[in-house]
């Protein structure tokens, strides 16, 4: 098999396995899986910025929340329905990422991390400040009339799973196409050596801005879908925790691998789920995982696997 054939076979097999899982798993786990798939879309977006382009952001919660509120606010205040609201969320995430990028990408490294952190914090505080419009700390419930997509009630398990799966599959395949495209190669070139890439004729600012905007589209879509599928929009999704989570998923699964974000989200979700049966110390699990990963496995699971065995893994 050529590398291309191996890559497509692997990714389509993973998608097929996830799809079939809904028929085999008990409802509790199927709902979990739907949640994981939406979070994986968020993490895939984070991975495009961090894993492929080398932009370590601490502010992706802002883009996730932009998607969630970009979907939720028009539903609440303007009576929009599911599809236009979801698209509004997607666009809001990408647009906000673009605007933040215009400013933040004038910095790099540690400064970039702090600038994105500060923008996200300002966004979170703004949600609280404008509480008459946003519902503030308490958030709001997404009207059930709006949670109907092509005639399917998204509050039902099956419709929710199928919707989450569709978005996840589209996100995964788009990511695969992107990173195997010439533009994907340029993103990696920026991560590896920005100055060299400039002297090959690429404008680093433009490339990074584009990558960040695409990343924001993923985050926005995930935020919108999360609010739509689980019926609730709240400011807690804009806190720093939601910037750390996708980073954790990506680091665990393997930064700069297409399947890494999903694998990381899946493992981390169940790690917390299982340990919370024995202890309520879930913050400790998250913290220890972060420290352990940077210390002992900075490439993550699939990154290590690629280094040792499957060199063709994208």
């Amino acid at each position: 098999m050529t590398d291309g054939a191996k890559i497509w076979t692997l990714h389509l097999l993973v998608l097929a396995a996830v799809f079939v899982a809904q028929f085999l798993l008990p409802p509790y786990h199927a709902t979990n899986l739907a949640r994981i798939m939406v979070l994986a879309v968020f993490a895939m977006g984070y991975n495009i910025a961090f894993g492929y382009t080398g932009l370590l952001s601490l502010g992706h919660a802002l883009f996730f929340a932009a998607g969630m509120y970009g979907m939720g606010l028009p539903v609440w205040h303007l009576g929009w329905l599911s599809l236009p609201a979801l698209i509004a969320g997607l666009v809001a995430g990408g647009a906000l990422a673009g605007v933040v990028g215009l400013l933040a990408l004038r910095t790099a490294g540690v400064s970039f991390m702090i600038v994105t952190l500060m923008f996200a914090q300002a966004g979170y505080l703004t949600l609280l400040y404008l509480n008459t419009w946003t519902g503030g700390d308490e958030g709001f419930v997404v009207l059930s009339e709006a949670r109907v997509l092509f005639g399917f009630d998204l509050a039902t398990d099956t419709a929710r799973f199928i919707t989450a799966f569709t978005l996840f599959a589209a996100g995964l395949l788009a990511c695969l196409l992107l990173v195997r495209s010439p533009f994907g190669r340029v993103m990696v070139a920026m991560r590896e050596n920005e100055e060299r890439s400039r002297m090959l004729g690429y404008d680093p600012f433009r490339i990074k801005l584009l990558a960040l905007a695409v990343s924001g589209l993923y985050a926005g879509l995930a935020g919108a879908a999360y609010g739509m599928l689980f019926g609730y929009v709240g400011a807690s999704f804009a806190t720093i925790q939601y910037s750390i989570l996708p980073m954790l998923y990506v680091l665990l699964g393997g930064a700069g691998t297409v399947l890494g974000p999903f694998l990381g989200a899946l493992l981390m979700f169940y790690l917390i789920d299982i340990t919370s049966n024995y202890t309520d110390a879930y913050l400790f699990v998250v913290g220890a995982a972060l420290v352990g990963l940077v210390l002992f496995a900075p490439k993550g699971i699939l990154g290590t696997l690629r280094e040792r065995v499957w060199r063709w893994l994208p």
């Binding site: 190669r185 070139a189 590896e192 060299r196 090959l200 004729g201």
Partner: peptide, 19 residues
């Protein structure tokens, strides 16, 4: 100043594809 973690092909392709 090549890209050490990319293949030789990708290194040269980056130069060729940009124009």
């Amino acid at each position: 100043s090549v890209y050490p973690r990319l293949t030789v092909f990708d290194n040269v392709a980056l130069a060729a594809q940009g124009r």
